[in-house]
Design a protein around this nucleic acid. Structure first.
Ligand SMILES: [Zn+2]
Ligand SMILES: [Zn+2]
Ligand SMILES: [Zn+2]
Ligand SMILES: [Zn+2]
Lengths: 139, 139
DNA sequence: GTGCGCATGAGAATCATTCTCGCATATGCC
DNA sequence: GGCATATGCGAGAATGATTCTCATGCGCAC
């Protein structure tokens, strides 16, 4: 064995950089890329390496503090999210994100997986659309 | 408007390479990466450029003949799929893929999007698990 | 048959992400 | 406090998938 991010039982050492990344995500709305976050931190005068941003994001995801979303271009987006299972409603124009629970989807997933003999089931569901604000702005 | 891949009304010129890519996908089961497909074609003695494989895959996706799925490593997988809307049950061990319809999910998606004022809604849903065969093989 | 224009292929370029490695620093022990 | 050790950091190189460039090939309309 060997966990890449964090060995089981080992403590995570506190870090100004990781706190900075998390703090930045706390005050942002939608999903942001690692590169974006790095740029934003730099603009604030916070000297932090790009590799460190990636390491911090991985650690935060491992700790269940962030949600990851991969866009069609392959770039990963990160967002501060609640720890319980949920899904997202994302505006493809302004990035506005709403967390939603989807009990019918959870039920359907479990049932159809069982019917086909699949075990240890996980699922990804994201809903994309245009929010009311953006729809109005466009006429 | 303007489609990136194919201008509206313009014909797609037939191509041995595109047919080869589609033909290969017809006889394969799960999602395959562009690089995989390129290697397979080369091994068959079919001389085809990597860039051409990417171009063919994009064209086929634009024509609705293929489904795309992006793995956690960012690599895109392509699969020959039925043209109607559906979702996938994918074995994370052997890649076995089953197409499934999800009416409850479609209903839930439409309802929750409407409730939050989102228009022009699309969604991505993929279910991952371990198929019966792989579960048995592991004990 | 000719000519135009899209298609191709080899390699370069791009871009996000990861790795390397020497240095900084927190933590635990004395 | 002071030292030993392991983890975190930063800059730049390396990786790997995807896209771009451009010279050449070839199908199709005439
Ligand atoms: Zn919006
Ligand atoms: Zn769910
Ligand atoms: Zn399987
Ligand atoms: Zn659906």
């Amino acid at each position: 064995m060997s966990a890449p991010g964090q060995a089981e039982g080992a403590a995570r050492r506190p870090s100004r950089q990781r706190d900075a990344v998390l703090g930045l995500l706390e005050e942002l709305d939608g999903f942001r890329s690692a590169q974006d976050l790095h740029t934003l931190l730099r603009e604030r005068g916070d000297t932090v390496g790009l590799a460190t941003v990636y390491r911090a994001l991985q650690a935060l995801v491992d700790d269940g503090l962030l949600d990851v979303l991969r866009g069609p271009d392959g770039e990963a987006g990160y967002r501060r999210c609640s720890p319980s299972h949920h899904h997202h409603l994302v505006c493809r124009s302004c990035g506005l994100t709403v967390e939603v629970a989807a009990p019918p989807v959870e039920r359907w997933t479990a049932r159809v997986a069982a019917e086909h003999g699949f075990a240890d089931v996980r699922h990804d569901l994201e809903v994309f659309g245009t929010c009311r604000g953006c729809a109005a702005r466009r006429g």
